[in-house]
Design a protein around this nucleic acid. Structure first.
Length: 477
RNA sequence: UGGGGUGUAGAUCAGUUUGGAAGAUCGCUACACUUGGGAUGUAGAGGCCGCAGGUUCAAAUCCUGUCGCCCCAACCA
C-alpha cells in the first residue's frame, strides 16, 4: 500500500504544511477552535503535554531557588504607561476592560499581555534592604495579546506560559540569572522535548520591549523555518527606576535593583508538532508523550488474548504512561495508523501467535521498525527504546539544522540562499538599517547573535561596511 | 488596513448559472461477521442551506444588508 493511502485523512506535510499542522492539531485532539475568535480550547491530550513540560521546567526553576506566586490578570493603565518602550511595544495588542456591569470604570484595566509592570510595582512595596535580595518569583498563568493572525499553539490570542521575574543587588548577578534561565530553556528543549536549538542574543531591533538584552532559543521546523521557543531578558534598571524599586545597599546608599524576566509558553507544543511531525502525523518525544506505550491486542476475541493483554498492561502501567486499546469496532490496522497519527512513541502488538511463543512485537514510531521481544524482558526493552527514540528524534532535528544552515558572504548570496529556507549565517555591521533592509527585500529576520561566533568575512552582508558580529538569520513562524 | 475567495449534516463538498420534495462520500449509532498495516454486510441517527430583511404562488438558488471563516499583501514582544 502506498504511503499516501495510509495518511489519506491528513494533508501531505510536504505540499501544505500549514494545513497539515491544522489537521494534526484537530485530528490528534490536541486542541480545537472555539467561538472566541483567536482562542483555542486545549483538549486533554494536548494539555497533558503541557503538564509534563510544566512539571519538568518547574522543578528546574525551583532547583535554582525560584518560588511560585500569583499576580492579577488585570493591570491598571497607569502602571502600563510607566515604562515608555514597554507600553509602545505592547499597546497595539493589548485588550482593555472599560466597564463593569452598567458602570464605566474610572481607569481602564488591561488584560495582562505580560506582567512586568504589576509585579515590579509590588516589588517596590516589598523591597527595603540589600538583605531582602534577590526576589526570585515565577508565575504559571495565562496572558492575552490581540494577535491579528492566529494559529493554534504557535500564536493564539490567549496562551498559557510561565513568566519568571527576578530582581537582584547587582547587574552582574541579574545578568548571570538571565543566562542561567536561558540554559534551563535549552535543557527543556533538548533534553525534554528532543528539539535542538540555536541560542544567543537578540539584536536591538528584535529584543523585548523595555529590555536591555534579550536572549532566545530558536528551533527549526520541519520546513526549515525558525520558531522562537523561549526568551530570557535582562532589564538593567529600566523598570526599577520608573517603578522606584529601591533598596539600601551595603554602603547604606539608596540604589535601584537590577531585573530579569524569562518565559516559555504553550507555543512549545507547537514547536514539538512542527519540529518532529512527519507524513504520518504527530511524533511525540517520549518524555512528554501523554501515552508512551500503546498496547494493541490482535484477535481479541480469541481465548486468552484479552486477559494476557490486561495482565501486561497492569504490570507496565506502573512504570510507563500506558494505553490499552480494546476498541472492538476498529481493525488492528486502523489502530496502528491512529496511534501513529497521535504520535505515541512505542506500540506493542500482541496476538495469539505471540502469546504462544511468550513474545510480543514492539514498533517504534520514529523508525517504524518492528522488534520481536520476550515478554519477560518487556520493561527493560521499553526503557531502552524510549531512550533511543528520544536520541534519534533529537538527531533527526540536529541533522536538519546542519543541512539547512548555510553561509552567505554577500547580499546576492544571501538572497539566493534565503529562497531555500533554513538558517543563514552572515556577518552584520550592527546597524538597524541593514536589518530592516534585509527584512524588506527578503522577508528574513535576524534570529540571534550566537555566543559561539564564527568569522565568515570582514564586512556586513548588507552594506559592505566593517562587520561586528556573525548573526543567524531565518524566516520565522 | 488593502486585494481575492468561501459559508449547505460532525468533516470534505455537490446542488445556485436557468427558483419547483435537502444530496453524495467519509465519520457516527446498533447488530452480525472479522482482526498480524486503514475489513464487510444490514439497519439507523443526524440540516432554521451563516444571520436579517426583500422579490415571488414558490427561495439553498434572485436582490439588499450584515456577520463569520480562509488565502495573498502589510503589521506582529
Amino acid at each position: 500500500m502506498k504511503e499516501k493511502d495510509f495518511v489519506k485523512e491528513i494533508t501531505n506535510i510536504d505540499e501544505d504544511i500549514a494545513q497539515w499542522y491544522t489537521d494534526i492539531v484537530l485530528k490528534a485532539e490536541l486542541a480545537d477552535y472555539t467561538d472566541t475568535k483567536g482562542c483555542i480550547a486545549i483538549k486533554p491530550y494536548g494539555y497533558e503535554i503541557w503538564e509534563n513540560i510544566q512539571k519538568y521546567a518547574d522543578s528546574k526553576f525551583k532547583e535554582t531557588g525560584v518560588k511560585n506566586t500569583y499576580f492579577p490578570v488585570l493591570i491598571p493603565e497607569s502602571l502600563l504607561q510607566k515604562e515608555k518602550d514597554h507600553v509602545e511595544g505592547f499597546a497595539p495588542e493589548v485588550a482593555w476592560v472599560t466597564e463593569a456591569g452598567e458602570e464605566k470604570l474610572e481607569e481602564r484595566l488591561c488584560i495582562r499581555p505580560t506582567s512586568e509592570t504589576i509585579i515590579t510595582t509590588m516589588y517596590a512595596k516589598w523591597l527595603n534592604s540589600w538583605r531582602d535580595l534577590p526576589f526570585l518569583y515565577n508565575q504559571w498563568c495565562n496572558v492575552l495579546r490581540w494577535e491579528k493572525e492566529t494559529r493554534p499553539f504557535l500564536r493564539s490570542r490567549e496562551f498559557l506560559w510561565q513568566e519568571g521575574h527576578t530582581i537582584h543587588e547587582t547587574a552582574e548577578e541579574a545578568k548571570e540569572r538571565t543566562l542561567q534561565m536561558l540554559n534551563i530553556y535549552i535543557d527543556v528543549a533538548e533534553n525534554l522535548l528532543a528539539i535542538p536549538v540555536i541560542y544567543g542574543k537578540k539584536t536591538e531591533k528584535e529584543k523585548f520591549a523595555g529590555a536591555d538584552e534579550t536572549y532566545t532559543i530558536e528551533a527549526m521546523t520541519y520546513d526549515g523555518r525558525a520558531l522562537q521557543a523561549g526568551t530570557s531578558h535582562y532589564f538593567g534598571q529600566n523598570f526599577t527606576k520608573p517603578f522606584e524599586v529601591k533598596f539600601q545597599n551595603r554602603e547604606g546608599k539608596e540604589e535601584y535593583a537590577y531585573q530579569t524576566s524569562w518565559g516559555i509558553s504553550t507555543r512549545l507544543i507547537g514547536a514539538v508538532i512542527m519540529a518532529h511531525g512527519d507524513s504520518r502525523g504527530l511524533k511525540l518525544p517520549p518524555k512528554v508523550a501523554p501515552i508512551q506505550v500503546v498496547l494493541v491486542p490482535i484477535a481479541m476475541h480469541k481465548e486468552g488474548v484479552k486477559e494476557k493483554a490486561e495482565e501486561i498492561y497492569q504490570k507496565l502501567n506502573k512504570k510507563f504512561r500506558m494505553k490499552l486499546d480494546l476498541r472492538d469496532q476498529y481493525s488492528p490496522g486502523y489502530k496502528f495508523n491512529d496511534w501513529e497519527m497521535r504520535g505515541v512513541p512505542l506500540r506493542i502488538e500482541m496476538g495469539p501467535r505471540d502469546i504462544e511463543n511468550g513474545t510480543c512485537i514492539l514498533v517504534r514510531r520514529d523508525t517504524l521498525e518492528k522488534i520481536t521481544v520476550s515478554i519477560d524482558n518487556l520493561e527493560e526493552e521499553i526503557n531502552n527504546l524510549l531512550e533511543a527514540i528520544h536520541k534519534n528524534m533529537f538527531e533527526i532535528c540536529k541533522k536538519r539544522i546542519a543541512e539547512n544552515t548555510r553561509v552567505a558572504h554577500n547580499f546576492e548570496e544571501f538572497t539566493k540562499i534565503g529562497e531555500k529556507g533554513g538558517f543563514i549565517k552572515a556577518m552584520w555591521c550592527g546597524n538597524k538599517e541593514c536589518e530592516e533592509k534585509i527584512k524588506e527585500l527578503t522577508a528574513i529576520k535576524s534570529r540571534c547573535i550566537p555566543f559561539e561566533q564564527e568569522h565568515i568575512s570582514d564586512v556586513c552582508v548588507c552594506c559592505g561596511k566593517k562587520a561586528e558580529k556573525m548573526v543567524i538569520w531565518g524566516k520565522q513562524y
